[in-house]
Write a protein that binds this DNA or RNA. Structure first.
Length: 342
DNA sequence: TACTCGTGGCT
DNA sequence: TAGCCAAGAGT
């Protein structure tokens, strides 16, 4: 078990100084050391959007959501379909369902005001250990232990942790906890994450500009990029199926609302076969189907080839104008629809 | 605990 | 190009 970093006050001071000079300007962030109290709604919304999602990808969604729903009460009053459509393309759609559930819990059970403790935040839908700690520290100035993938990597390098992920998670969290303090908790959390994102990067870390090299055991090994160690992941299987692009005499596209649970849950989608079926699976309605090609899409745990067939016809579907459908669909269906319309 | 759950950019 | 990776949560 690696020891707690020596000289905690010096490490904290060095990183906070670095943050004051190098903090990134982000849509949801006030300047470092700002006395303006961040809006908990915006902090929470940004943290949910940033779960497993890059800043460039999340930023336009954050701007669109805050423009359309300026407060948590506005979001709580939104239609489910509008929120799911606005989330389309961002991925991990359970986040959008939980986002609405959380907004409605805050509006209905907390009088529209976000709770200001880590424990109370943790009880909200879609708010886990990371997000509860992040909102508590950034929005409410609580000394919470904010641990994401960046922080895990920084700790693994700083302390040269030889245990591979994911088994090392408790150890890395404990190391991060030893550095948390009451001074500028929100800035501390963001400084650690910014350092991981821009300096202590997964590949080719920029140790020459890092404020922590004096204390970094990984740096002293000469190969800091080796950390954190990881156990090998299983190979990604390949699946296939058929997607059907059916258009009525007005040119509208036939869509289906997917069940709330499971892949792409709660989202609109094209009618498809099972994604293990042979390409001759039975179409949803009788029509003169023609081959329109195929699309590839890679999910987290499998790769998918969808053969696309197109036809004109009628049936019991959600009929949507093609331009609207393209905006409201998850990427895999957007790709298939574009192929079917071509 | 281990698996499910998206997407796009980078190497 | 095929894998890696990103401010994780729910089950």
């Amino acid at each position: 078990m690696p020891s707690v970093p020596a000289d905690v006050p010096a490490i904290r001071s060095a990183l906070l100084d670095w943050y004051d000079a190098h903090a990134r300007a982000l849509a949801w962030r006030h300047g470092p050391g700002s006395t303006a109290r961040p809006d908990p709604y915006r902090v929470w919304l940004s943290e949910v959007m940033l779960q497993q999602t890059t800043t460039p990808h999340a930023t336009p969604y954050f701007l669109a959501f805050t423009a359309r729903w300026p407060t948590v009460s506005d979001l709580a009053a939104a239609e489910d379909a509008d929120v799911m459509a606005a989330w389309a393309g961002l991925g991990y759609y359970a986040r959008a369902r939980n986002l609405l559930a959380c907004a409605r819990a805050v509006a209905g059970e907390h009088e529209g005001v976000f709770p200001d403790t880590e424990a109370a935040l943790l009880a909200l839908p879609g708010v886990g250990a990371y997000t509860a700690a992040a909102v508590a520290s950034i929005a409410f100035d609580r000394a919470a232990n904010v641990v994401d993938g960046n922080v895990e990597r920084v700790m693994a390098r700083l302390c040269a942790v030889e245990t591979p992920l994911p088994a090392a998670k408790p150890e890395l969290k404990s190391l991060a906890a030893s550095l948390v303090g009451d001074h500028r908790p929100g800035d501390w959390a963001q400084a650690l994450m910014d350092l991981g994102a821009t300096v202590c990067r997964p590949g080719k870390p920029l140790c020459e500009v890092c404020p922590l090299t004096a204390w970094c055991a990984g740096f002293r090994t000469g190969a800091p990029e080796r950390y954190p160690l990881k156990t090998k992941k299983a190979d990604r299987p390949r699946r296939s199926g058929v997607a059907w692009v059916l258009r009525d005499d007005l040119g509208r596209v036939a869509l289906v609302r997917r069940p709330d649970k499971g892949l792409l849950g709660g989202m609109l989608g094209l009618p498809t076969s099972d994604w293990s079926a042979a390409p001759d699976a039975a179409p949803p309605v009788v029509a003169e189907w023609r081959e329109a090609g195929a699309i590839e899409h890679v999910f987290t745990h499998f790769a998918l080839t969808l053969s696309v067939q197109a036809a004109e016809g009628e049936g019991d579907f959600v009929w949507v104008e093609p331009q609207e459908a393209l905006k409201a669909l998850p990427t895999v269906f957007r790709k298939a629809l574009e192929r079917g319309l071509a």
